[in-house]
Design a protein around this nucleic acid. Structure first.
Ligand SMILES: [Mn+2]
Ligand SMILES: [Mn+2]
Ligand SMILES: [Zn+2]
Ligand SMILES: [Zn+2]
Lengths: 161, 161
DNA sequence: AAACATATGCAACATTGTTGCATATGTAAA
DNA sequence: TTTACATATGCAACAATGTTGCATATGTTT
């Protein structure tokens, strides 16, 4: 059988060939299976400028896997520390790629910002969560800080009006 | 018709007469309707040593209102700043009485502790959330900090073993 | 190409929370 | 004490989010 020297069909499903190669590399390095669903999902998170929620992700998927598969893969990536989960509030959970693969600066526990105007979530890895003196007998394992406010873009738009 | 000088039947539904009087006073002061459901609910939150979730509350209610009523009254109390809502994580939301009515020290934005062993939530009103220098253009409206770890009681029990 | 472990889809279920609407109850005025 | 009115409640229905069990499909290694 002849071997054709061109891109395999599945490569055309993704917008950017480079991103697909990057996320495939991440999965290979972690020693986990490279499936179309996983590549598509990571591709979307890699392209995104901000953390995305399950709805955002579904909107961007050209080929939608079963809802259960999406949940399972999100949990899988969190467990493998490929992405991190941001529980913004009761009804909003977003996910963001751990760019630790690329930059060192994306620290484990950092501030997350939620804009009450555009409802975007923004990772602020440069702002590590500060320490607190807990009462006698209490020990800390982890922490999370969500700051609610108005983002730079929405503040600019307010001034223009 | 004769007027009997004894406690009305509804007083017997609550464990402590004093607590009932306290919460009734809170509702009157706020100028909202004093209903049995509301008194029972506030009574339970007033008695509690820690924030309670919807399940905790239902367990303690001797006369259970409809689930919808419970949600509506919890939201009503939050809106009227009688209680505060603590979104611990994806699947746990707890509520705590705003003891500002009694003590001044229960500040608006404080640290909340979640024990990963006993799963109790603990308000730490003495630990106000620290300030952060947000990037240019960002403005802050509110914030929340959840610290995950092991509480004093669970740490003690660990030492004994 | 075959073998095996793992990923996926589907059906079913659970929990949390919301809305609309008819009825019940609390409060203040008569 | 009774009446009138606004508000609280119960019920039915719905929606969103997330989980589990199991049969089948797919990825990886040999
Ligand atoms: Mn982040
Ligand atoms: Mn608190
Ligand atoms: Zn914004
Ligand atoms: Zn504990």
């Amino acid at each position: 059988m002849e071997t054709v020297d061109c891109l395999p069909p599945k490569a055309f499903r993704n917008r950017h060939r480079n991103s697909t190669e990057t996320v495939t590399h991440i999965l290979k390095k972690k020693g986990v299976r490279v499936t179309q669903n996983r590549v598509d999902l990571l591709d979307i998170l890699n392209d995104a400028q901000h953390p995305l929620n399950q709805k955002d992700i579904e909107e961007r998927l050209s080929v939608k896997p079963d809802r259960v598969t999406l949940y399972r893969n999100l949990r899988f990536f969190v467990d493998h520390k490929i992405i991190h989960k941001i529980e913004v509030n009761d009804s909003l959970t977003s996910y963001s790629l751990n760019r630790t693969f690329i930059e060192e600066e994306h620290s484990e526990e950092h501030l997350h910002f939620y804009c009450s105007v555009c409802h975007k979530v923004i990772c602020m890895p440069q702002l590590s969560i500060k320490e607190y003196d807990l009462p006698e007998g209490f020990s800390q394992q982890s922490s999370k800080l969500i700051v609610n406010g108005i983002c730079n873009i929405c503040n600019e738009e307010k001034q223009e009006i």
